[in-house]
């Protein structure tokens, strides 16, 4: 019988369609995985944003990945029982976000202010001589910034709180 750990490992290859290097596990979207005596698997997933348009796609991808392990009965529940916030992104996930060309979100203490959003480190040259252009970007999770040092516009995976 497949173990919970094997499912966690399989889900580490299910990518966020908007940042296809970042898995749903590194993103912190997978709340829990359980397998009952009959071998049926249940995966609890929480969206990054209430209006995330990719959630149905992600749900299907998670289901497919678990089915591929040979599990016959798979239930993927999407809910807000646990509320995602950007501190749930793993260290590995932060490195992957930077590698993808986005500034990773700073770890926050549950409070976001304009100060937190200014002077974000540029993912290209690491300078903090940067300015936020707008807290909204091409996807719900990104803000747009400009680096005064290397004269490049860049995006940040923005810090989001919950609770």
């Amino acid at each position: 019988m497949v173990t919970e750990q094997e499912i966690w490992t399989a889900l580490d290859s299910v990518m966020d369609p908007e940042i296809p290097k970042l898995s749903v596990v590194d993103l912190g979207m997978v709340s829990s995985i359980s397998i009952d005596e009959s071998g049926a698997a249940e995966v609890e997933v929480t969206p990054t944003f209430a209006g995330c348009p990719a959630i149905d796609f992600i749900k299907r991808s998670i289901r497919d990945a678990v089915v591929e392990l040979g599990v016959e009965s798979v239930t993927v529940n999407v809910n807000f029982d646990r509320q995602w916030n950007s501190n749930m992104i793993s260290e590995k996930g932060r490195a992957l976000i930077k590698d993808w060309g986005l500034a990773p979100p700073p770890v926050h203490d549950g409070y976001i202010s304009l100060d937190v959003l200014q002077n974000v480190a540029c993912p290209h040259c690491d300078s903090r001589n940067t300015t936020m252009q707008t807290p909204f970007g091409p996807t719900l999770c990104r803000s747009i910034h400009y680096c005064n040092n290397c004269s490049q516009a860049f995006e940040q995976f923005k810090p989001v709180t919950s609770g």
């Binding site: 209430a50 807000f80 509320q83 976001i112 709180t161 919950s162």
Partner: peptide, 14 residues
């Protein structure tokens, strides 16, 4: 849901 939406609305208010 309130716990979730709060973080999103922070950006709207800002």
């Amino acid at each position: 849901l309130a716990k979730k939406f709060k973080g999103e609305v922070e950006y709207h208010v800002l």
